[in-house]
Amino acid sequence: MADMTLRQWLLTDTPTSRRHAKLSALYQGWLAFRSNTMAMIGLGILLLLVFIAAAAPLLAPHDPFVQNLGNRLAPLGSEGHLLGTDSLGRDILSRLIYGARITLYIVALVALIAPVVGLLVGTVSGYVGGWVDIVLMRITDIFLAFPRLVLALAFVAALGAGIENAVIAISLTAWPPYARIARAETLTIRSSDYIAAIKLQGAGGLRIITKHIWPLCISSLIVRVTLDMAGIILAAAGLGFLGLGAQPPSPEWGAMISEGRRFILDHWWVATMPGLAIFTVSLAFNLLGDGLRDVLDPKAGE
């Protein structure tokens, strides 16, 4: 059918190949996602953030590290410094733009480590059961028993301050909830007929976990991770604020707030601008997570 448009091809009921079926399913998901305005706003903000981070040297009006003590604590809208300057006379806008890189770096690393660890622990625990389940879940409980930031603090204190260690510390404290979710999902999936059916084909545990259970757990984990991203950014900022995350002069947003805190009464913008940046990005992740839940949740979707 030559006169079929791409849209028709993607929305067909009768896909003609594996690739076609995949693309079609993806497109339907995209359509569902697109109809959610708030989620699209969230996605837009995050794409903008990625662009800003990638093009930071082109976008930033100044070098984020260059100090100008003669022009310190310049107010908003002063000449050449749209968002003013900080206590060392550095351009806040440029620092925010470069800080986007650090934020993305933290978010990406945590998003790679924590849910994967949680998924592994949770699905194995749920599927295998018995003493494996007991041991893994007690370990999870131990991690859950500490306040997250306090535990991250302890890890950073042990590992040494710095952005990589902050990421590792946050990841280590972030995985237990994912393990819990993955385990709960695995328990319901494990007893379903389609798992019984694949068992009757002689499939082993490894295949069942990776090919049959993971695809169903991943969607709810993605949603959860997206919703948690705000918290992760805040935790990283918190560590930065306490001086245990990114080290000066790095333009990490949390560290910037920490620096600006001393002048908060007289020069409020120094701490407020990075605060607004954190707020915007966190909100964007939350909106995106809500939208993704509508698309990915298999229970609501069908």
């Binding site: 079926a21 389609y194 169903l216």
Partner: peptide
């Protein structure tokens, strides 16, 4: 081999017909 009671519960929701049969 066995055929289950509820066809709504016995097929993996994320696997296409092709994937189900090919894997088997």
């Amino acid at each position: 081999q066995m055929v289950f009671q509820d066809p709504y519960a016995s097929l993996h929701p994320r696997h296409s017909v092709d994937a189900v049969l090919a894997e088997t």
